[in-house]
């Protein structure tokens, strides 16, 4: 029992320590090297963020709507795709599976470079839509994968039971499948959102500096070693991501906690 407590406390501190450092840095004025704590506190980081011309808020809005849309579209595509691959046999199934996974087997940078040329051709480069599409190529392999596992684990028996109880396909999805895949929805949207939310290179490449997301604002500060502003931005970053998670969790709430199915 005691060992258990020590263990969970250790885990807790391991998780929380980086946050404490971030919070400290974001309120630092000067922090001489080698000191345990900053010698002077200040609000430079937060002032920068709150300044109207800093573009932080605008980029946050772009980031949230971009990643939100990516998450939603990913889920809408992955649910039927996952079900099809998990439950049905069709010609070229293994090819489809490989193609879906391809973007994360090949480094995303290479994929992005290749797609960039086509996007320029079709006028998708430097646009929100283009960035959305390139994010989808990275997130879809993950979300489809998740739903393949979710549907494989649930099996076809629930669907069959629904059919013998005279439920049509939509009723089966609405009243049965939806509840079975809820845990997968939560896990899937968290993963997809975060992959998209922290995407730097592909946004930069395809967005061409026209689509400014939060990571694009954050990176230069990390690069140039301005830890104060970088830390404040990181906190904003983490908070918005957490905020999204809470909303997702609430939307897909499992009131009874009845689903015995698989957080994957």
């Amino acid at each position: 029992m005691r060992l258990n407590k020590i263990f969970s406390l250790t885990i807790f501190y391991l998780l929380i320590t980086p946050f404490i450092v971030l919070i400290l840095w974001s309120f630092t004025q000067t922090w001489p090297a080698g000191e345990l704590l900053p010698s002077e506190f200040g609000f430079r980081g937060w002032r920068y963020i709150l300044e109207p011309h800093s573009k932080v808020w605008h980029s946050l809005l772009v980031s949230l709507s971009l990643s939100g849309a990516v998450t939603l579209i990913s889920l809408i595509i992955s649910i039927p795709a996952g079900k099809a691959i998990a439950h049905y046999d069709f010609v070229g199934k293994s090819l489809v599976e490989t193609l879906i996974l391809a973007p994360i087997i090949v480094p995303p940078i290479a994929v992005g470079m290749g797609i960039h040329l086509s996007f320029i051709k079709y006028g998708l480069a430097d646009s929100f839509l283009g960035v959305l599409l390139i994010h989808l190529t990275v997130t879809l392999p993950y979300s489809v994968r998740i739903f393949i596992s979710v549907f494989k684990a649930a099996g076809t028996k629930w669907d069959e039971q629904g059919r013998t109880l005279k439920a049509n396909w939509w009723a089966r999805f609405r009243y049965i499948t939806w509840y079975l895949i809820k845990p997968g929805l939560v896990t899937g949207s968290a993963l997809v959102f975060n992959v998209s939310f922290s995407q730097y290179f592909l946004t930069f490449l395809i967005g061409g500096g026209k689509v400014i997301t939060l990571p694009l604002i954050l990176f230069p500060f990390i690069n140039s070693g301005d830890r104060v502003i970088a830390s404040s931005l990181s906190l904003i970053f983490i908070l918005s991501s957490l905020f999204f998670m809470i909303i997702a969790e609430k939307c897909i709430e499992d009131n009874q906690r009845q689903s015995e199915f698989y957080y994957l």
Partner: peptide, 21 residues
Amino acid sequence: LSAEKRDVVMVFQDNLLFPHI
């Protein structure tokens, strides 16, 4: 005739009661 339209109901091995209702 598909299962939805057949006047036949099947009870499966492990009851398969919908857990959320």
